[in-house]
Computed example of a mutant assay.
Amino acid sequence: MKQEPPRDSEAPDPVDTRLGARLAELRAERGWSLGELAERSGISRSTLSRAERAETSPTASLLNRLCHVYGRTMSQLLSEVESEPALLVRAADQPVWEDRSSGFVRRSVSPPHAGLRAEVVEGRLTAGADIAYDRPPVPGLEQHIWVLEGALDVTVQETEHRIGAGDCLRMRVWGPTRFRCAGPEAVRYALVVVLP
């Protein structure tokens, strides 16, 4: 009787599996090799290959770079691996995605829809979490960040903004941004994203 080799890790998350398949589809639709996508995104071929095969859970930064290349917001990409969004989305049915390596949890409160330009996202960062995006997924993207609990440091166009509970920052994103939770508590915020 043949024995199966021991598994080094647990089975891939179903969302990561669907996400990997969608990333592979997007690349194939454009006729790009992994090498071409690596050049366009600045992500190594091996990392891209592992993400497409769901051997690794992509980070928020990696997904942001791919969204930029594919001209989508992160919510649009994530919604493509979920079912068709309904008009009413119950809290228990809102898709949640987690970047465990950075301490970032993202809930699509109102998943995007092809005919609409805005969406609402809930973000949570653990104390000490620091996420840098080298570019927006869509240039000129409008964002409104409303801090619900804790404090968030957001850097936009080399200007740092400290946003406390109840504060709201409105911005258009053309270049790098950084989201940091200095702590000591986690931060929870609502993010309204509006396509240009």
Rank of each mutant, 00 (worst) to 15 (best):
I163N: 05
G123T: 10
R162F: 07
R180Q: 05
T17Y: 10
P58C: 04
A51N: 14
S41C: 10
G42F: 10
P85Y: 04
P111C: 09
R40V: 02
L63Y: 14
S110D: 08
R170Y: 14
K2N: 13
Y189F: 15
P111G: 11
M171W: 03
R170L: 13
F104G: 01
G71L: 03
L37T: 12
T177C: 07
V193A: 12
D153T: 11
F104P: 01
S75Q: 12
Q94N: 03
I131D: 10
D99S: 00
A190D: 06
E10N: 03
T177A: 09
R40S: 09
Y189D: 03
R172N: 06
E29Y: 10
V156C: 05
A129P: 15
E10H: 06
I163E: 07
S44A: 11
Y133P: 03
L62R: 05
G35N: 13
G35W: 07
R178T: 03
R22N: 10
R100T: 14
H113M: 06
G123M: 14
R117K: 15
A165N: 13
E39T: 04
L141M: 14
G166W: 02
S57I: 09
S61M: 06
T159S: 13
E158C: 03
S108L: 12
Y189L: 03
P137K: 04
Q94K: 09
D93T: 00
R172V: 02
A21V: 04
Y189W: 04
T17K: 09
S33K: 00
W32N: 07
V187A: 10
L116T: 09
R188S: 15
T73C: 10
G164E: 12
G128N: 02
D13Y: 13
Y189V: 01
I163F: 08
V121N: 10
R30N: 04
T155A: 05
R90I: 00
D8S: 09
V138I: 14
T73I: 09
I163C: 08
P137D: 08
A151N: 06
L37M: 13
